[in-house]
Design a protein around this nucleic acid. Structure first.
Lengths: 165, 165
DNA sequence: GCACAATTGCTGCAATTGCGACTGTTGGTT
DNA sequence: AACCAACAGTCGCAATTGCAGCAATTGTGC
Protein backbone atom coordinates (compact mmCIF):
# COMPACT_ATOMS: atom_id res chain seq x y z
CA UNK A 1 0.00 0.00 0.00
CA UNK A 2 2.84 2.39 -0.65
CA UNK A 3 0.76 4.04 -3.30
CA UNK A 4 -0.03 7.58 -4.27
CA UNK A 5 -3.66 6.89 -4.85
CA UNK A 6 -5.18 6.44 -1.48
CA UNK A 7 -8.73 5.98 -2.72
CA UNK A 8 -10.21 2.63 -3.56
CA UNK A 9 -9.24 2.89 -7.18
CA UNK A 10 -5.53 2.18 -7.38
CA UNK A 11 -5.88 2.34 -11.11
CA UNK A 12 -2.25 2.49 -12.00
CA UNK A 13 -0.95 -0.42 -10.03
CA UNK A 14 -2.72 -2.90 -12.22
CA UNK A 15 -0.51 -2.05 -15.14
CA UNK A 16 2.49 -4.28 -15.45
CA UNK A 17 4.13 -3.67 -18.74
CA UNK A 18 5.56 -7.13 -19.12
CA UNK A 19 2.05 -8.56 -18.90
CA UNK A 20 0.44 -5.88 -21.00
CA UNK A 21 -0.81 -7.37 -24.22
CA UNK A 22 0.08 -4.67 -26.76
CA UNK A 23 3.53 -4.45 -25.32
CA UNK A 24 4.07 -8.18 -25.48
CA UNK A 25 2.92 -8.24 -29.06
CA UNK A 26 5.40 -5.53 -29.95
CA UNK A 27 8.27 -7.34 -28.30
CA UNK A 28 7.50 -10.66 -29.93
CA UNK A 29 6.94 -9.05 -33.33
CA UNK A 30 10.10 -6.95 -33.17
CA UNK A 31 12.29 -9.85 -32.20
CA UNK A 32 10.79 -12.14 -34.82
CA UNK A 33 10.97 -9.55 -37.55
CA UNK A 34 14.58 -8.73 -36.79
CA UNK A 35 15.73 -12.30 -36.57
CA UNK A 36 14.07 -13.08 -39.86
CA UNK A 37 15.40 -9.97 -41.56
CA UNK A 38 18.88 -10.91 -40.53
CA UNK A 39 18.58 -14.08 -42.55
CA UNK A 40 17.74 -12.64 -45.90
CA UNK A 41 19.54 -9.34 -45.54
CA UNK A 42 22.84 -11.10 -44.96
CA UNK A 43 22.31 -13.49 -47.83
CA UNK A 44 20.80 -11.21 -50.44
CA UNK A 45 21.16 -7.66 -49.18
CA UNK A 46 17.42 -7.22 -49.10
CA UNK A 47 15.70 -5.00 -46.58
CA UNK A 48 12.42 -5.64 -44.86
CA UNK A 49 10.20 -3.48 -47.06
CA UNK A 50 11.84 -4.87 -50.18
CA UNK A 51 11.25 -8.39 -49.01
CA UNK A 52 7.62 -7.69 -48.29
CA UNK A 53 7.11 -6.41 -51.79
CA UNK A 54 8.81 -9.47 -53.21
CA UNK A 55 6.74 -11.77 -51.03
CA UNK A 56 3.58 -10.18 -52.32
CA UNK A 57 4.65 -10.43 -55.92
CA UNK A 58 5.78 -13.99 -55.41
CA UNK A 59 2.33 -14.83 -54.23
CA UNK A 60 0.20 -12.78 -56.61
CA UNK A 61 2.34 -12.43 -59.71
CA UNK A 62 0.98 -9.07 -60.84
CA UNK A 63 0.02 -6.17 -58.61
CA UNK A 64 0.03 -2.40 -58.63
CA UNK A 65 1.98 -0.50 -56.00
CA UNK A 66 -1.30 0.43 -54.44
CA UNK A 67 -2.31 -3.21 -54.08
CA UNK A 68 1.02 -4.06 -52.54
CA UNK A 69 0.60 -1.31 -50.02
CA UNK A 70 -2.86 -2.38 -49.06
CA UNK A 71 -2.06 -6.07 -48.86
CA UNK A 72 1.14 -5.64 -46.91
CA UNK A 73 0.07 -2.74 -44.70
CA UNK A 74 2.81 -0.44 -45.93
CA UNK A 75 2.74 3.26 -46.63
CA UNK A 76 2.70 4.12 -50.28
CA UNK A 77 5.98 5.97 -49.94
CA UNK A 78 7.58 2.92 -48.41
CA UNK A 79 6.29 0.78 -51.22
CA UNK A 80 7.39 3.32 -53.79
CA UNK A 81 10.96 3.39 -52.53
CA UNK A 82 11.18 -0.34 -52.08
CA UNK A 83 9.92 -0.90 -55.61
CA UNK A 84 12.37 1.66 -56.98
CA UNK A 85 15.28 -0.19 -55.52
CA UNK A 86 14.02 -3.56 -56.64
CA UNK A 87 13.52 -2.30 -60.18
CA UNK A 88 16.98 -0.78 -60.15
CA UNK A 89 18.40 -4.12 -59.11
CA UNK A 90 16.50 -5.88 -61.82
CA UNK A 91 14.48 -8.00 -59.41
CA UNK A 92 11.13 -6.47 -60.24
CA UNK A 93 9.66 -5.37 -63.53
CA UNK A 94 7.31 -2.47 -63.92
CA UNK A 95 4.81 -2.43 -66.76
CA UNK A 96 2.61 0.62 -67.24
CA UNK A 97 -1.08 -0.10 -67.39
CA UNK A 98 -2.23 1.14 -70.77
CA UNK A 99 -5.79 1.43 -69.53
CA UNK A 100 -4.82 3.68 -66.64
CA UNK A 101 -1.54 5.45 -66.95
CA UNK A 102 -1.48 6.45 -63.33
CA UNK A 103 -0.61 2.98 -62.23
CA UNK A 104 1.81 0.28 -63.29
CA UNK A 105 1.83 -3.45 -62.87
CA UNK A 106 4.65 -4.98 -60.88
CA UNK A 107 5.96 -8.50 -61.16
CA UNK A 108 9.05 -10.47 -60.25
CA UNK A 109 11.70 -10.70 -62.90
CA UNK A 110 13.40 -14.02 -63.44
CA UNK A 111 16.28 -13.19 -61.10
CA UNK A 112 13.77 -11.84 -58.65
CA UNK A 113 11.78 -15.05 -58.78
CA UNK A 114 14.96 -17.01 -58.26
CA UNK A 115 15.75 -15.12 -55.08
CA UNK A 116 12.18 -15.41 -53.91
CA UNK A 117 12.34 -19.16 -54.37
CA UNK A 118 15.35 -19.25 -52.08
CA UNK A 119 14.12 -16.86 -49.42
CA UNK A 120 10.59 -18.18 -49.09
CA UNK A 121 11.69 -21.62 -47.83
CA UNK A 122 14.04 -19.96 -45.39
CA UNK A 123 11.16 -17.96 -44.02
CA UNK A 124 9.01 -21.04 -43.72
CA UNK A 125 11.78 -22.92 -41.98
CA UNK A 126 12.14 -20.08 -39.55
CA UNK A 127 8.44 -20.13 -38.87
CA UNK A 128 8.52 -23.85 -38.33
CA UNK A 129 11.33 -23.60 -35.85
CA UNK A 130 9.37 -21.00 -33.99
CA UNK A 131 6.39 -23.28 -33.55
CA UNK A 132 8.37 -26.45 -33.27
CA UNK A 133 7.31 -27.88 -29.97
CA UNK A 134 3.93 -26.22 -29.71
CA UNK A 135 1.01 -28.59 -30.16
CA UNK A 136 -0.95 -28.01 -33.34
CA UNK A 137 -4.17 -27.51 -31.45
CA UNK A 138 -2.68 -24.77 -29.29
CA UNK A 139 -1.21 -23.16 -32.33
CA UNK A 140 -4.55 -23.10 -34.09
CA UNK A 141 -6.20 -21.55 -31.08
CA UNK A 142 -3.42 -19.01 -30.94
CA UNK A 143 -3.87 -18.01 -34.53
CA UNK A 144 -7.59 -17.76 -34.14
CA UNK A 145 -7.23 -15.36 -31.23
CA UNK A 146 -4.57 -13.44 -33.09
CA UNK A 147 -6.97 -12.93 -35.96
CA UNK A 148 -9.66 -11.73 -33.63
CA UNK A 149 -7.29 -9.34 -31.91
CA UNK A 150 -6.06 -7.96 -35.21
CA UNK A 151 -9.55 -7.36 -36.45
CA UNK A 152 -10.47 -5.77 -33.16
CA UNK A 153 -7.53 -3.45 -33.03
CA UNK A 154 -8.21 -2.40 -36.58
CA UNK A 155 -11.70 -1.33 -35.59
CA UNK A 156 -10.53 0.41 -32.45
CA UNK A 157 -7.77 2.12 -34.34
CA UNK A 158 -10.15 3.43 -36.96
CA UNK A 159 -12.57 4.50 -34.27
CA UNK A 160 -10.03 6.59 -32.45
CA UNK A 161 -8.81 8.24 -35.60
CA UNK A 162 -12.26 9.19 -36.72
CA UNK A 163 -13.34 10.45 -33.33
CA UNK A 164 -10.27 12.54 -32.80
CA UNK A 165 -9.87 14.31 -36.09
CA UNK B 1 -1.61 -24.06 -61.68
CA UNK B 2 -0.63 -20.81 -63.29
CA UNK B 3 2.72 -21.05 -61.62
CA UNK B 4 6.28 -20.44 -62.64
CA UNK B 5 7.69 -23.48 -60.93
CA UNK B 6 6.61 -26.46 -62.91
CA UNK B 7 8.73 -28.99 -61.04
CA UNK B 8 7.53 -30.96 -58.09
CA UNK B 9 9.17 -28.67 -55.57
CA UNK B 10 7.10 -25.52 -55.61
CA UNK B 11 8.92 -24.37 -52.53
CA UNK B 12 7.77 -20.81 -52.67
CA UNK B 13 4.08 -21.34 -53.06
CA UNK B 14 3.68 -22.40 -49.50
CA UNK B 15 4.40 -18.91 -48.34
CA UNK B 16 1.34 -16.77 -47.98
CA UNK B 17 2.27 -13.61 -46.20
CA UNK B 18 -1.11 -13.06 -44.62
CA UNK B 19 -0.82 -16.44 -42.91
CA UNK B 20 2.84 -16.09 -42.04
CA UNK B 21 3.25 -15.88 -38.32
CA UNK B 22 5.99 -13.26 -37.95
CA UNK B 23 4.16 -11.04 -40.39
CA UNK B 24 0.88 -11.39 -38.57
CA UNK B 25 2.56 -10.55 -35.31
CA UNK B 26 4.05 -7.41 -36.79
CA UNK B 27 0.72 -6.27 -38.17
CA UNK B 28 -1.15 -6.86 -34.94
CA UNK B 29 1.59 -5.25 -32.88
CA UNK B 30 1.91 -2.22 -35.12
CA UNK B 31 -1.79 -1.55 -35.19
CA UNK B 32 -2.16 -2.02 -31.46
CA UNK B 33 0.83 0.11 -30.66
CA UNK B 34 -0.31 2.93 -32.91
CA UNK B 35 -3.86 2.94 -31.69
CA UNK B 36 -2.68 3.03 -28.13
CA UNK B 37 -0.09 5.71 -28.79
CA UNK B 38 -2.73 7.89 -30.33
CA UNK B 39 -4.59 7.91 -27.06
CA UNK B 40 -1.89 9.25 -24.82
CA UNK B 41 -0.04 11.30 -27.38
CA UNK B 42 -3.14 13.37 -28.12
CA UNK B 43 -3.96 13.83 -24.47
CA UNK B 44 -0.53 14.43 -23.01
CA UNK B 45 1.87 14.89 -25.90
CA UNK B 46 3.86 11.86 -24.86
CA UNK B 47 5.61 9.65 -27.39
CA UNK B 48 5.92 5.91 -27.27
CA UNK B 49 9.45 5.68 -25.82
CA UNK B 50 8.60 8.30 -23.24
CA UNK B 51 5.53 6.42 -22.21
CA UNK B 52 7.44 3.19 -21.86
CA UNK B 53 9.90 4.85 -19.54
CA UNK B 54 7.08 6.27 -17.49
CA UNK B 55 5.34 2.92 -17.35
CA UNK B 56 8.48 1.32 -16.03
CA UNK B 57 8.99 3.99 -13.41
CA UNK B 58 5.34 3.85 -12.46
CA UNK B 59 5.75 0.18 -11.78
CA UNK B 60 9.17 0.11 -10.17
CA UNK B 61 9.56 3.57 -8.63
CA UNK B 62 13.33 3.78 -8.89
CA UNK B 63 15.45 2.51 -11.76
CA UNK B 64 18.60 3.43 -13.61
CA UNK B 65 18.48 4.14 -17.32
CA UNK B 66 20.19 0.86 -17.90
CA UNK B 67 17.48 -1.02 -16.02
CA UNK B 68 14.78 0.74 -17.97
CA UNK B 69 16.44 -0.26 -21.20
CA UNK B 70 16.74 -3.86 -20.22
CA UNK B 71 13.23 -4.17 -18.83
CA UNK B 72 11.54 -2.42 -21.70
CA UNK B 73 13.67 -3.77 -24.53
CA UNK B 74 14.80 -0.36 -25.67
CA UNK B 75 18.15 0.79 -26.93
CA UNK B 76 20.12 2.81 -24.47
CA UNK B 77 20.10 5.79 -26.81
CA UNK B 78 16.35 5.63 -27.04
CA UNK B 79 16.09 5.52 -23.28
CA UNK B 80 18.59 8.32 -22.91
CA UNK B 81 16.69 10.65 -25.17
CA UNK B 82 13.31 9.77 -23.76
CA UNK B 83 14.57 10.39 -20.23
CA UNK B 84 16.10 13.70 -21.28
CA UNK B 85 12.79 14.94 -22.52
CA UNK B 86 10.89 13.69 -19.53
CA UNK B 87 13.33 15.38 -17.17
CA UNK B 88 13.10 18.58 -19.15
CA UNK B 89 9.33 18.46 -18.83
CA UNK B 90 9.59 17.83 -15.14
CA UNK B 91 7.86 14.47 -15.29
CA UNK B 92 10.88 12.47 -14.23
CA UNK B 93 13.51 13.19 -11.63
CA UNK B 94 17.09 12.14 -11.89
CA UNK B 95 19.13 11.50 -8.79
CA UNK B 96 22.80 10.66 -9.10
CA UNK B 97 23.86 7.51 -7.37
CA UNK B 98 26.52 8.56 -4.88
CA UNK B 99 27.89 5.04 -4.78
CA UNK B 100 28.40 4.89 -8.54
CA UNK B 101 28.56 8.21 -10.29
CA UNK B 102 28.20 6.66 -13.71
CA UNK B 103 24.56 6.00 -13.17
CA UNK B 104 21.59 7.90 -11.83
CA UNK B 105 18.31 6.82 -10.35
CA UNK B 106 15.17 7.78 -12.17
CA UNK B 107 11.74 8.19 -10.68
CA UNK B 108 8.45 9.84 -11.50
CA UNK B 109 7.97 13.34 -10.18
CA UNK B 110 4.63 14.27 -8.71
CA UNK B 111 3.29 15.63 -12.00
CA UNK B 112 4.72 12.59 -13.73
CA UNK B 113 2.93 10.30 -11.34
CA UNK B 114 -0.26 12.22 -11.88
CA UNK B 115 -0.05 11.68 -15.62
CA UNK B 116 0.86 8.06 -15.16
CA UNK B 117 -2.20 7.56 -12.99
CA UNK B 118 -4.32 8.87 -15.81
CA UNK B 119 -2.69 7.05 -18.68
CA UNK B 120 -2.36 3.65 -17.05
CA UNK B 121 -6.13 3.14 -16.71
CA UNK B 122 -6.58 4.22 -20.30
CA UNK B 123 -4.10 1.60 -21.38
CA UNK B 124 -5.84 -1.05 -19.34
CA UNK B 125 -9.20 -0.07 -20.73
CA UNK B 126 -7.80 -0.35 -24.20
CA UNK B 127 -6.46 -3.78 -23.45
CA UNK B 128 -9.77 -4.84 -22.02
CA UNK B 129 -11.61 -3.71 -25.11
CA UNK B 130 -9.24 -5.72 -27.21
CA UNK B 131 -9.97 -8.90 -25.35
CA UNK B 132 -13.59 -8.10 -24.65
CA UNK B 133 -15.44 -11.00 -26.20
CA UNK B 134 -12.66 -13.54 -26.08
CA UNK B 135 -13.19 -16.30 -23.52
CA UNK B 136 -10.76 -16.18 -20.63
CA UNK B 137 -9.58 -19.70 -21.29
CA UNK B 138 -8.69 -18.92 -24.89
CA UNK B 139 -6.98 -15.78 -23.78
CA UNK B 140 -4.86 -17.66 -21.28
CA UNK B 141 -3.86 -20.19 -23.89
CA UNK B 142 -3.01 -17.36 -26.24
CA UNK B 143 -0.76 -15.69 -23.72
CA UNK B 144 0.95 -18.92 -22.91
CA UNK B 145 1.80 -19.56 -26.54
CA UNK B 146 2.86 -15.95 -26.93
CA UNK B 147 5.31 -16.39 -24.10
CA UNK B 148 6.71 -19.53 -25.64
CA UNK B 149 7.08 -17.86 -29.01
CA UNK B 150 8.80 -14.86 -27.52
CA UNK B 151 11.25 -17.00 -25.64
CA UNK B 152 11.86 -19.06 -28.74
CA UNK B 153 12.45 -16.14 -31.02
CA UNK B 154 14.83 -14.68 -28.50
CA UNK B 155 16.92 -17.83 -28.64
CA UNK B 156 16.78 -18.04 -32.41
CA UNK B 157 17.64 -14.40 -32.71
CA UNK B 158 20.67 -14.76 -30.49
CA UNK B 159 21.67 -17.89 -32.34
CA UNK B 160 21.69 -16.21 -35.70
CA UNK B 161 23.63 -13.25 -34.45
CA UNK B 162 26.33 -15.36 -32.92
CA UNK B 163 26.61 -17.73 -35.85
CA UNK B 164 26.82 -14.99 -38.41
CA UNK B 165 29.34 -12.61 -36.93
C1' DG C 1 49.02 2.85 -6.09
C1' DC C 2 48.65 2.30 -11.10
C1' DA C 3 47.55 0.73 -15.51
C1' DC C 4 43.75 -1.31 -18.09
C1' DA C 5 39.46 -3.43 -19.23
C1' DA C 6 34.54 -2.91 -18.44
C1' DT C 7 30.39 -0.18 -17.72
C1' DT C 8 27.00 3.91 -17.75
C1' DG C 9 25.16 7.27 -20.29
C1' DC C 10 25.55 10.73 -24.06
C1' DT C 11 26.49 12.67 -28.75
C1' DG C 12 27.46 12.78 -33.94
C1' DC C 13 26.25 10.74 -38.00
C1' DA C 14 23.88 8.09 -41.36
C1' DA C 15 19.90 5.47 -42.63
C1' DT C 16 14.88 4.80 -42.30
C1' DT C 17 10.48 6.47 -41.90
C1' DG C 18 6.09 9.18 -42.23
C1' DC C 19 3.82 13.36 -43.66
C1' DG C 20 2.60 17.01 -46.85
C1' DA C 21 2.79 18.73 -51.09
C1' DC C 22 3.21 17.93 -55.91
C1' DT C 23 2.67 15.87 -60.89
C1' DG C 24 0.15 13.45 -63.99
C1' DT C 25 -4.08 10.88 -65.05
C1' DT C 26 -8.89 9.50 -64.77
C1' DG C 27 -13.91 9.86 -64.22
C1' DG C 28 -17.90 12.37 -63.21
C1' DT C 29 -20.71 16.74 -63.57
C1' DT C 30 -22.30 20.50 -65.83
C1' DA D 1 -15.91 20.28 -74.14
C1' DA D 2 -14.50 22.23 -69.68
C1' DC D 3 -14.07 21.87 -65.13
C1' DC D 4 -12.94 19.56 -60.89
C1' DA D 5 -12.70 16.10 -57.36
C1' DA D 6 -10.41 11.65 -56.69
C1' DC D 7 -6.55 8.80 -57.28
C1' DA D 8 -1.58 6.63 -58.23
C1' DG D 9 2.86 7.40 -57.45
C1' DT D 10 6.97 10.47 -56.42
C1' DC D 11 9.69 13.87 -53.95
C1' DG D 12 11.39 17.08 -50.30
C1' DC D 13 11.60 17.65 -45.54
C1' DA D 14 11.57 16.83 -40.76
C1' DA D 15 11.42 13.51 -37.11
C1' DT D 16 12.85 9.00 -35.36
C1' DT D 17 16.03 5.49 -34.97
C1' DG D 18 20.37 2.55 -34.57
C1' DC D 19 25.22 2.36 -34.58
C1' DA D 20 29.86 3.74 -33.65
C1' DG D 21 32.47 6.23 -30.87
C1' DC D 22 33.07 9.25 -26.80
C1' DA D 23 33.93 10.92 -21.74
C1' DA D 24 33.48 9.74 -17.06
C1' DT D 25 33.61 6.38 -13.54
C1' DT D 26 34.42 1.90 -11.48
C1' DG D 27 36.85 -2.31 -10.30
C1' DT D 28 40.42 -5.65 -11.08
C1' DG D 29 45.18 -7.47 -11.49
C1' DC D 30 49.75 -6.46 -10.86
Amino acid sequence: MSDTDGAGGKPADNLKLERFLPYRLVVAATLASRALARIYSRHFGIGIPEWRVMAMLGQFDRLTARDVGELSHMHKTKVSRAVSELVERGLVEKTPNRDDLREAFLSLSLPGRRIYDQVAPMALTFEKRLMDDIPAAEMQAFERVLSTLTERVRVLSAGFTAADD
